[in-house]
Computed example of a mutant assay.
Amino acid sequence: MNGLLKRSLESGEILEMIYLSNKNQLSQRKIKVVDISSNTFRAYCFTRRQPRIFRISNVLSIGPERKKFWEGAAC
């Protein structure tokens, strides 16, 4: 996961993440990584439309943004 976060930080790639908050609430978010530390990372959250700090240990799933199959398709 750290490699994916670093790659996103360097390239500006948008990631999709499933996150478990400290209050045990699940959320699915699109993020852009801004900074990484040992236990947390800062990212712009497109869901909340603001910068957020996330605990790496609370990330349940993370990967590149999935494109819908019809995006870019000729009609």
Results as ranks from 00 to 15, higher is better:
1 M>T: 09
39 N>S: 14
67 K>Y: 08
30 K>V: 06
30 K>S: 09
32 K>N: 08
38 S>A: 14
25 Q>T: 13
42 R>A: 13
32 K>P: 05
68 K>W: 10
1 M>W: 01
59 V>R: 08
14 I>T: 12
75 C>K: 13
68 K>V: 07
29 R>P: 00
72 G>D: 04
40 T>Q: 09
35 D>R: 11
65 E>H: 06
57 S>H: 13
62 I>W: 00
28 Q>I: 01
8 S>T: 02
20 L>A: 10
46 F>D: 06
41 F>T: 04
42 R>S: 12
42 R>Y: 10
36 I>Q: 03
11 S>V: 06
64 P>T: 08
72 G>A: 03
48 R>D: 01
67 K>V: 15
62 I>A: 07
44 Y>K: 02
5 L>R: 04
23 K>N: 09
3 G>C: 06
15 L>E: 10
17 M>R: 03
15 L>W: 08
65 E>L: 15
11 S>Y: 05
40 T>I: 07
27 S>E: 04
30 K>H: 10
47 T>P: 00
67 K>D: 09
28 Q>G: 00
47 T>C: 03
71 E>M: 09
2 N>K: 12
21 S>F: 11
57 S>Q: 12
58 N>I: 01
62 I>N: 01
11 S>E: 14
26 L>H: 10
64 P>R: 14
31 I>C: 03
37 S>A: 11
63 G>Y: 09
38 S>H: 07
49 R>H: 13
12 G>M: 01
27 S>M: 04
72 G>W: 06
53 I>E: 03
74 A>D: 09
61 S>Q: 11
71 E>K: 08
65 E>Y: 08
59 V>L: 13
2 N>V: 07
37 S>L: 06
53 I>G: 04
71 E>V: 07
